[in-house]
Design a protein around this nucleic acid. Structure first.
Length: 558
RNA sequence: GCGCCCAUAGCUCAGUUGGAUAGAGUGACGGACUACGAAUCCGUAGGUCGCAGGUUCGAAUCCUGCUGGGCGCGCCA
């Protein structure tokens, strides 16, 4: 719809220039938007305001010229009025809205798809938790955000790869092994010392029991036993992480491993590439990279005095490889506490002439958990945290995923477990799901009354005439462009707001029928009922498609 | 000390990327089912968009400075 209006305005401007109604000029950037006040019509444009300076005429006068010369031979528009300081407000003919609905509904699951991202090949890396413990709430937020973003991107025609980077090399895994070993020894000798920086969670004891049951650790040297605990502990934890994510409906395409970068030698190889460009140097017995040449505060160590590579080294290698793999864009979802790493990562990429735009880092703020009116402090090291698994058992995947996307990712999120657990209107997910279930229920009623729910229907304009009905159609029709906005802005939370608004409009519409029986969807008039059922079909379709993108179920009854 | 992020109704947060009279949810109060699902709807109340300047036709949105909060500044990951 907006695109048709845009084309109409283009030809109108051309006409104005030819007729001399406006002085020929470069058309400045202007916007066509959906006003938030319905009195301002279906669409509004600031075109005349932006033309004012180059035309050297008052904006309202320009707007009037445009309206008078409108090129609308087919009667697409019902009204076009100059308003305020020079806005032009448009109302599109009801017939056009009804046609849009007729075209949308037969698309079913495909409604919302577009090709705006065609040609783009995007790698989205998210969660990427260390396999040293179970996933917790913060990981869940990243998983919900990343997965929904990927679903929306795919829907908009982007080619997307979902990737999990496993930090399975280095010190943390060693500490995990030592922690498991210590718990194992403590079974016999309660006084056996626990490592200073060890993992204190109860799951470490479970790991110790499990590993001891499958392998006789006492037959190994202490060093070998610790190494075994580290390797097996990592495997088991990774398995649990994968299970959790599967249950959370977050299927990854690629599991990328840090230790593989070491094993295959590709880390060294990639760093040689950086060296070849002249951005590495030795100082104080360590190897440094000149990130300060590209806006970082200072240079960074990538190989320590003791010969070990830093975490940053493998991260550089990993990201350069992402680029080599041919992606046109990379998106990382990181905890906000890592924001300091963004400049250095971009600087490292810049050593290979990779634009900072190529990598988008989405920083997610912390999740604060509240239970019984108190904040539950979480610490992985201290072993006190609520796992994603526990939360899924208690609350359910639908509610968790939805709630995680009710706020901008850059805004801290308070997760009130008592509230999310409640299966009532306190919980926003049920509001949307209920609208879907309610429509399904109406369909059952309609079929029982001998009516069919049409999948295709035209000539709706003589039946769908209520302001509420046209508002619903308009809301349905913006769904594809709303998804495009989300893909462009990387802000999936807009989807929950959109769906909540759509559900609200439907509930409001439904309630008209409780006052005036003529406004019910199923009425005595079969033709009218069919048209209204068709509209309901469209609403149901958009809710179902939207919820699918959120990874939330669309129940037929509740 | 330096850097990034945030500040909007009592509370939790949106705000279409610079548009018109700033909106939802929740809490408070008052209403609507013998009729398609009341997990719903309608109404009332609630605001100096942290403060002060600046940019322009126009600012919650962009720039500067302040105040208050979160996070980060390691040869840890």
């Amino acid at each position: 719809m907006k695109k048709r209006l845009e084309a109409l305005l283009r030809s109108t401007l051309r006409h104005c220039f030819e007729q001399g109604a406006l002085a020929p000029c470069q058309v400045p950037a202007y916007v066509i938007e959906v006003p938030n006040d319905p009195n301002h019509g279906h669409f509004a444009t600031n075109l005349a305001l932006t033309l004012a300076s180059s035309q050297k005429r008052p904006p309202r006068e320009i707007a009037l010229s445009i309206v008078e010369n409108l090129m609308d031979p087919q009667g697409f528009l019902e009204t076009a009025e100059v308003a305020g300081p020079g806005f032009i407000n448009f109302r599109v003919a009801a017939r056009e809205w009804c046609r849009a609905l007729s075209k949308a509904v037969p698309l079913k699951d495909a409604y919302g798809r577009s090709d705006t991202g065609s040609g783009e090949h995007v790698l989205v890396e998210f969660v990427s938790a260390n396999p040293t413990g179970p996933l917790h709430l913060g990981h869940g937020r990243g998983a919900a955000l990343g997965d929904t973003l990927c679903r929306v991107l795919s829907c908009c025609g982007y080619q997307v790869v979902k990737e999990f980077y496993i930090n399975d090399a280095g010190l943390q895994i060693t500490i995990l092994g030592e922690s498991i070993w210590a718990r194992f020894r403590q079974m016999e000798d309660p006084g056996y010392p626990f490592p200073e920086n060890g993992y204190h969670g109860a799951y470490v004891l479970d790991l110790a029991e499990k590993i001891a049951a499958e392998t006789d650790l006492t037959a190994l040297s202490e060093a070998a036993a610790k190494a075994h605990c580290a390797r097996r502990g990592k495997e088991i934890m990774l398995g649990e992480i994968k299970d959790d994510l599967y249950q959370f409906r977050v299927p990854f395409d690629v599991w990328s491993s840090e230790s593989e970068l070491y094993r295959t030698g590709s880390l060294e190889q990639t760093l040689e590439g950086v060296r070849g460009k002249g951005f590495l140097y030795e100082k104080d017995g360590a190897l440094w990279i000149r990130t300060s040449d590209f806006g970082d505060d200072k240079d960074r160590v990538i190989r320590k005095k003791d010969g070990e590579f830093t975490y940053f080294a493998s991260d550089i290698a990993y990201h350069l490889q992402k680029h080599q793999r041919g992606f046109t864009k990379a998106i990382n979802i990181w905890g906000a506490d890592h924001h300091g790493y963004v400049p250095r990562m971009k600087a490292a990429l810049a050593t290979h002439e990779i634009s900072p735009e190529w990598l988008s880092v989405m920083l997610i703020q912390l999740v604060k958990l509240w239970e019984d009116g108190r904040e539950v402090k979480m610490s992985k090291r201290a072993g006190s945290f609520v796992t994603l698994q526990e939360l899924m058992d208690e609350v359910g995947v639908d509610a968790i995923r939805f709630v995680f996307l009710t706020k901008h990712h850059d805004s801290p999120l308070d997760f009130d477990i008592n509230r999310v657990k409640r299966q009532d209107s306190e919980n926003p997910v049920y509001y949307v799901q209920y609208a879907h279930a309610r429509i399904c229920s109406i369909f059952r009623k309609a079929r029982a009354a001998g009516l069919t729910v049409p999948d295709e229907l035209e000539s709706l304009e003589s039946y769908l005439v209520l302001e509420e009905e046209l508002a619903l159609i308009r809301m349905i029709s913006v769904f594809p462009s709303r998804l495009e906005d989300i893909a462009r802005s990387l802000e999936p939370h807009r989807l929950t707001y959109y769906l909540t608004e759509l559900a609200a409009s439907f509930h409001r519409y439904f309630n008209l029928g409780t006052k005036v029986s003529a406004h019910r969807i199923v009425t005595d008039d079969p033709d009218l009922s069919r048209a209204r059922l068709f509209l309901a079909q469209g609403i149901k379709m958009v809710i179902a498609n939207g919820l699918r993108l959120l990874g939330v179920s669309a129940p037929k009854s509740m």
